[in-house]
Each structure stands twice: as structure tokens, then as C-alpha cells.
Nucleic acid binder design. Sequence first.
DNA 1: CTATCCTTTCAGTATATACTGAAAGATATT
DNA 2: AATATCTTTCAGTATATACTGAAAGGATAG
Lengths: 168, 168
Amino acid sequence: MLKSEEFVKFIESWGTMGVLWGINRSMARIHAFMILSENPVDLDEISKALYISRGNASMCLKELRNWGVIQRVHISGERRDFYVIEPDVWKMFFRIAVERKKREFDPALDTLRQLIAEKDSKKVKKVSDRLQRIEETFSTFDRILNKFLENEKTSRIMIEFFKNFAPR
Amino acid sequence: MLKSEEFVKFIESWGTMGVLWGINRSMARIHAFMILSENPVDLDEISKALYISRGNASMCLKELRNWGVIQRVHISGERRDFYVIEPDVWKMFFRIAVERKKREFDPALDTLRQLIAEKDSKKVKKVSDRLQRIEETFSTFDRILNKFLENEKTSRIMIEFFKNFAPR
DNA sequence: CTATCCTTTCAGTATATACTGAAAGATATT
DNA sequence: AATATCTTTCAGTATATACTGAAAGGATAG
């Protein structure tokens, strides 16, 4: 399961898309490599296959684990650590969504609200109306996302709804 | 409407969030500045207020126009170009979504499909099943997004649905 | 037509981000 | 407890990304 031209293309393309998720190229390439691997992989294999230093590979694996998109597994009789991807693709999506929201959306919404709450400014009506509209939009978005992420079951229901709404 | 502490904070925070949208700090800061401006702004004003070179400001404005989140307006009697934000916040959201999808999601989905279509590989069942599941997930996501973005009216309907589903 | 005002371009430079590899830290093996 | 195997850390370095400012390119005014 290695090294056809398409595999390389997939790994690099996944790497590019990684930016969409806010993860860096190496992380995404490692993730792609793991998707294409039949068996659990170890640091050495990754390092050699993708021409990445062990140090970097180690840091990327740690970060991928933080994001919850891969897991460390133990193989009896083996001393090394092995890794597998989170097998549930939607779950993988959610985890990324949660992480990004927490890191970048929430603080921005906070600041927006603070700005609106601010009393003594020389705010012009036009601008405060605009801020109000933005806050409403963000807030709606926030509620939808929270609803979506609140538990497994809710997510599944929403996905099913979506599938019907936009059938193949 | 300038330079309270909160305004600066808002601008910088918006700048951070910009990364979420795949736009760089300067672009996002300029956008934030424009949100807070009562009247159309020009290049010079931006450059001075945000301590950005005119060259950079010019490039950022161009890019923001490409994304469709700001518009150039003409003010009679004025020689300079002026700019305003897209006033419809949801529309702004959509434009960013469309752009990002086009740039980063679509190519990845393409590659994924190519990889699946590939005939003569030594693909292991486990891996091809996994790829199949990923394709399904991505494809569903793609259809939802397309549905959402296909026209103004559909978007509005979906937003209304969401608002009811996740009320304030 | 030419001077003035404004915008854009882009080579060079600065800054931020990612990566390497050697050393230290862990954990298992004998 | 010494050795071997594997992982993590991090200072230094490389690479990628963003920014500057001077020069060229337009547009309008006189």
C-alpha cells in the first residue's frame, strides 16, 4: 500500500487542504499517510516515508493527538508507539471544528460583544447597528455550531437531515 | 469613531480570526477598521490608522475586493478611491465560504475521487473501505455546502431553519 | 500637454512559521 | 544498574509569508 503516483498526490493534496483546517502541511501529510496505511504506523515509518525529521514527526503526532484525530495504540511485543487514525470520519470533522471554534471564533465573538457593551464611546448609530447585525449573525452561527457539537446523537440527526435535504 | 482601547482590541482580534478565513492579518485588520468606520474610507486613512504601508494596503484592498467582502465606491468631487464593507453579513460569510471551498476543498475531493477510481493499485480492502467512507462524508459535506450556496433564497431558508433549531 | 494627485507593482527585506538533528529524557531489557 | 531502544525537546537554521517603499502607471485638472 505504498507509493503509487496517486498516493503521493493524495498525500500532498491533503497537505494543501490542511491549511483549511488550520493545521500545517506536515501534520496533514502524516494524517494522509495514516489514512492510506493498512496497519498502525510508527514514528520511524512516517519519518522515512515522508522525509520528515523524527523530531518534527514527533511534534506533529503529538499535535494530531491533541486535536483528537489520531490515537496512540500499543502493540503487544512491540516497544515502539504506534498510531491509528480516528476511524469515524464525522467525529474527525467535529473534533477539528470544535478545536478551531475554540481557538479562533470564540475570542472574536467575545471581543465583539465587549465592544458592543462598551458604554462611553462616541459610537455612531450606523456603526453600532452594524455591529449589532454582525453580533446577531455570529451568535446564530455560534448556536448552530454548539447545537451541532453538543452530543453525538444531535450531530447524527442533523447529518441525516442534511443528507435528505441535499441527496446524492 | 476612532481609537478607544476596545476598537484597537476589536481590530487585532478580528485580525487573529482572519486566519480562520484564510486571509492574512493585514487584510482582516483593514476589514475590521472598515466595519468600525461610519463613512467610506480611503487608502491613505487606512495606511495611517493601522500603520501599514500604502503598497500593502493597496494589495489588501484588492484582495478583499476579490473575495467580495468590500466594495469600491466613488464619491463625487473626490479623486481618491473609497471603500465600504459588504453590508449584508451573511452574504459576506457566503462569499468567504465559496472562495475557500473553491480553493481548498474541491481540489482535495477531486484527488480523493481519483485515488478511489484508480484501478490497478494493490489496495487493501480495509483502506479502500476507509477511503470510500471519507469520500461519502466529504461528498455529503459538499452537497450541503452547494445547496447552501446555490442561491440567496435557499440560504435564507436554511438560516431560518437553523435559527428555529437553535433559538436564542 | 504637463503637472498633480492617487494607485499599483514588485524587488528587496523583514518577520513569522516550520523543520532539523543532536542531546536529554523515558522506558524496557538483560 | 547498565545498556539498548525509542521519544521528546529545543536551540539553531531554513523556508515561506507578509510588508515596505521607491518607481512606474493612470487619471483628472488646469
